[in-house]
């Protein structure tokens, strides 16, 4: 159901990356490489779209990160021959929590995601490179991301591909098998896996999301397809409750034309 023509997807996404970078007056893209699948795919696409001289990677480990993440991050960069730098975010993250201690690993995870964003954007300016997003459609839809953290970027090449489709594209692009084979994880704390935290395997979640979002099937039709009602309702709640992450914050309307409401221009205005 979710199979894709990877050659066509690669053609469209590399054209999109090139267009996004060049029309904004840049020549370079920078990718935060986590050691996982999504960033490896985006790295490969950026390299293909812009060439080796115009794609950069930052690997941004925290002291609690799985050592495999760093190893896989380097592996992806070496495989696609993209220059990279490793920047340990532990000193800045730990300095913050020394002042404001917490027991919440979610807060630490979010802080790490936002610290990585801050480093990426600083290096975006240093390298004159636009930040390429690495979010996929599955996580964007259920809100499995940190607002202003890993979701922050200039453009989203794989934001309309479900996670299972990113797997397919990764194999097509030659992402190292070890990276493709490992369980997806945001690596926010030891042993974390996406599927464990979300509570559903991507292969099921993606079909469910596809039926709900792209095909607009109603609950009855989806149940007939084999999904249980509580799961359908739970995923629907995740989509609804994370809508704030997918939209700009609302502006209180006072004037005749209001930003975000009826001041209607594309981001690509005059580009």
């Amino acid at each position: 159901m979710l199979k894709i023509d990877c050659r066509m997807v690669e053609k469209i996404l590399t054209a999109f990356i090139k267009d996004s970078v060049l029309k904004n007056g840049f020549r370079n893209a920078i990718v935060g490489v986590s050691g996982g699948l999504d960033s490896a795919v985006v790295l490969a696409l950026c390299k293909k779209a812009l060439g080796a001289a115009h794609a950069f990677a930052l690997i941004l480990p925290y002291r609690a990160s799985d050592p495999d993440s760093l190893r896989h991050g380097k592996m992806a960069c070496r495989k696609f021959r993209v220059p990279f730098e490793v920047i340990d975010i532990s000193p800045s993250v730990d300095a913050y929590f020394e002042r404001f201690p917490t027991e919440s690993r979610l807060q630490v995870g979010n802080k790490c995601a936002r610290e990585r964003m801050a480093v990426l954007y600083d290096h975006s300016a240093r390298q004159q490179a636009l930040v390429a997003g690495t979010s996929n459609k599955s996580e964007l839809l259920i809100g499995y991301s940190t607002q202003f953290g890993d979701s922050a970027c200039a453009f989203q090449p794989i934001g309309d591909l479900y996670k299972t489709q990113v797997f397919e594209l990764a194999r097509h692009l030659g992402v190292p098998a070890e990276i493709v084979a490992k369980k997806p994880s945001a690596d926010l704390w030891p042993g974390q896996t996406d599927e464990g935290e979300i509570g559903i395997a991507y292969k099921d979640l993606d079909v469910l999301l596809h039926l709900m979002v792209d095909m607009r099937w109603d609950e009855g039709e989806i149940i007939e397809r084999g999904f249980k009602l509580p799961l359908i309702r739970r995923v629907r709640r995740m989509i609804v409750n994370s809508q704030f992450k997918r939209t700009m914050p609302p502006v209180a309307k006072l004037h005749a034309r209001t930003i975000g409401i009826d001041f209607r221009y594309l981001r690509d205005w005059n580009k």
Binding site: K3, D5, M8
Partner: peptide, 10 residues
């Protein structure tokens, strides 16, 4: 607009 990706392309 190109849309409707599947195994047979767009």
């Amino acid at each position: 607009p190109q849309r409707g990706i599947g195994r047979d392309g767009i």
